Simulated scan of single mutants.
Amino acid sequence: MIFKTEAGQRRIMRRYEEILASWPVPAERHQVPSTAGETFVLVSGPEDAPPLVLLHGSGSNAAMWAGDVESWAKRFRVYAIDMIGEPGLSAPSRPPLDSAAYADWLDDVLDHFGLDSVAIVGASLGGWLGLDYATRRSRRVERLALLCPGGVGRQKYGFLFKVALYRPFGQWGMRRSIKAVAGVDPRATPEVADYLTLMFTHFLPRRDRLPLFSDEALRGLTMPVRVIVGERDAMFDSRDTARRIGRTVPHAEVTVLPGVAHSIIGQTEPILEFLTR
């Protein structure tokens, strides 16, 4: 069970359906069979364009990319995947993170669409997934763009104190937690804050630590790599991420955004520029 209640699950799914109904570009919905259960994939962009796979963060779904897809779908066939075990339309299964299960699952999804190799954009947990796949299946990843990826820099836990501190204060406390952890300001982006508040009111996030990639695994990333992190990320040590990527993947482009927290926005065009070189 990945939701606190069935009623809460229905509320999240209703809101997700509203977002999908107002998707900014024409899109196809696919339910793809896999070894880990059915996987929902939202596909948009020209059929003959190069494939781009989008992997969202924890506590989210394909809705995360609503602000980016209009630009990216002009140049790519975009596959926005709902990760298994997250609050989307894919199976609730959560295989062990320290296994090949997620790479096997993504193999199933790509094989379903006949995709031999793809570019990947991943954020947070999706960044970890993109890295996991690229380290295990390097021949299938042409380019890799990562926003605040897990599995590289030291994982932080100090934010849990703030979450516990705000928990007794209902919706107000949840919004304060989201601002403290993700850096999402309800005054600046109220729709995003509302959506995250709905998610984390009713969804049970993963509790297990993200496995760290070894230096050896990171050195195996021979494809072009772009990494963007926020200086004030409360979940991952961004300086540590930048140092490790710089040391093990010297050809990678790494940007540390000053004053930015875990939630990274406004990178649609920089990522598109990297993907289309």
Rank of each mutant, 00 (worst) to 15 (best):
Q171T: 10
G126D: 09
L42Q: 02
V25S: 02
A66P: 04
G158E: 08
I84C: 06
E216D: 15
L20E: 11
P168K: 07
P96F: 02
A261Y: 11
R154K: 15
Q31R: 11
W105I: 01
I245E: 00
L131R: 09
L147Q: 12
I81V: 11
G230V: 05
D116K: 14
V43E: 06
L125G: 00
F200W: 15
H56T: 04
V260T: 06
P92R: 09
A134E: 02
S90H: 13
V260C: 06
Q171S: 10
F76I: 12
E17G: 10
P258K: 01
F213T: 00
A66I: 12
A103W: 07
R75I: 01
D116T: 12
M83T: 15
L52Y: 02
P26D: 00
W65H: 04
R77E: 08
E142S: 11
H112R: 05
A36K: 07
E70H: 05
D233R: 09
L198P: 07
S138Q: 13
R226H: 14
A217N: 05
G220R: 10
E47F: 07
T189K: 14
A103D: 10
S238V: 11
T39R: 13
F3I: 05
M1Y: 05
I178L: 08
G127E: 05
Y166L: 09
V181L: 13
S60C: 15
G153E: 10
P33G: 02
T276I: 01
H112G: 04
L131H: 08
R277P: 12
T35S: 15
Y79R: 02
F113T: 01
A101K: 07
A101M: 12
S263E: 15
G230M: 05
H112L: 07
R207M: 14
D208N: 14
I2R: 10
L110A: 02
H202E: 15
L272C: 03
E6G: 00
D68S: 11
V260D: 03
G37Y: 07
E70K: 06
L52N: 00
I264P: 03
S90C: 08
E191K: 12
W128Y: 08
R206K: 11
T255V: 15
F76P: 08
V254S: 04
R136H: 11
V254T: 04
F200M: 09
R209I: 14
A217L: 11
L97M: 09
G259V: 12
V53Q: 03
R206N: 12
R137F: 13
I245T: 00
F203K: 05
L115A: 01
A188F: 10
F3T: 05
F200H: 09
V78S: 00
A193E: 05
G150E: 01
L54Q: 03
A103Y: 12
S263K: 14
V32H: 09
F274M: 06
D185Q: 11
E273C: 00
W105D: 03
I12V: 15
V109G: 02
P26H: 00
E38I: 03
D185V: 07
A242P: 12
D132N: 12
D68G: 01
Y157V: 11
K156W: 10
E191P: 05
L125A: 03
R136V: 08
A63R: 13
H30S: 07
